[in-house]
Design a protein around this nucleic acid. Structure first.
Lengths: 197, 197
DNA sequence: TAGACGCATTGATGTAGGATAAGAAATGAA
DNA sequence: TTCATTTCTTATCCTACATCAATGCGTCTA
């Protein structure tokens, strides 16, 4: 599992093999089964999770017991609650495994060590933060104005591969609609001869 | 105008007066009247705007011509399109003045110079980024699940002072509802004897 | 000081999407 | 295989919110 993390990591930074190994020898990795919960709402998020294989998600549960999916993380993605991780405060989020997945656990020691020895790591981290903001802002904008259909079309345009791996009720939860509505939207799209693939 | 920027800036970083002046001597500041547009959708955002007095907002306009307010920036706030600014790409946003406002224009030279000479500036910038993410994520979560009333209550809880300065149709636009609906929500709250202040 | 403009309110009516329920189809476990 | 569980679909009804339209009211301005 560390191999794919190494490939990922070195594609984004300029670390040599030695540098990489000097800071990764303490990293834990683990295979978890479908349904495993990696972070509970209310707990402090001590790790970012790199997915080398499989699929994770983050979500909240509101007062009425409803889940709202915030993010999906397939292969070569990192998922975390950034504010909880950074500010050491209780997380709003759950993170769990949608499929059996292989995870590398990234902790603060690693982040600090990498930031210490590599300018490009710091740059890369900054880029990731700005991408995250861009993505969230776009989502806010869609939620403010777009219809269920527009949001669904946007989703499958951006995550075509994910669409095939994720159950529809989860996509619905990400879009902020019910599974029934998503089913109707899809039916309507099919009627109008729309082909996603 | 630069004075309040200096106070703000030095409260967040450890720059000495000399250091501060060495990097701010090129900063522009300006008073703009109500309604002035500082950034147009499609343009690249070359500045972050520090508000020393007054009130700015950022918003999008969708295909149907509707405005969706993304953010408000009163005194001592900085507003910008971070992704456009950082990645040098066309902005999704407009930024304009809700009131007559005094602005300090922060450009990349300033950011780079400050980052160069001050560790605490870099830290502060990082904190700001993480706060931004936290705020956006919370907003996504509210938009996914909460009713108009819940969102309004959340807004006045977080921005009690702003609520008095901003017209209701703008608050409605921020919340993703129509002014009519907001008016009814307020009426309903009043009936149930809710007092905002 | 009139009128014009922006904003808030209210009412009447429309509609996208939610809730509920029930059956079909897929998946999975034994 | 069979039985169970989860997911998807469909139909009916319902509700939160939008849309449209009219009115009133403050405030700017000419």
């Amino acid at each position: 599992m560390l191999d794919s993390f190494k490939t990922y990591f070195q594609s984004k930074t300029d670390l040599t093999d030695e540098q990489f190994h000097s800071i990764t020898d303490t990293l834990q990795s683990k295979k978890v089964e479908k349904g495993s919960i990696l972070l509970h709402q209310g707990d402090i998020c001590h790790h970012s999770f790199f997915v080398s294989k499989g699929l994770l998600r983050s979500y909240t549960i509101d007062e009425t017991g409803k889940e709202h999916i915030i993010q999906f993380a397939p292969e070569n993605w990192i998922i975390s609650d950034r504010s909880s991780f950074y500010f050491n405060e209780p997380s709003e989020l759950f993170i769990d495994a949608i499929e059996e997945t292989e995870i590398v656990f990234i902790d603060k020691n690693f982040i600090n060590a990498a930031a210490e020895i590599s300018v490009s790591f710091r740059q890369q981290d900054n880029i990731a933060l700005h991408n995250h903001i861009r993505q969230l802002q776009k989502r806010v904008n869609l939620l403010l104005g777009a219809t269920a259909e527009q949001r669904y079309l946007d989703f499958i345009a951006i995550y075509p591969k994910l669409t095939l791996r994720i159950s529809q009720w989860m996509i619905a939860s990400y879009l902020g609609i019910t599974p029934e509505t998503l089913s109707r939207v899809r039916k309507e799209l099919a009627k109008r001869n729309f082909k996603p693939y």
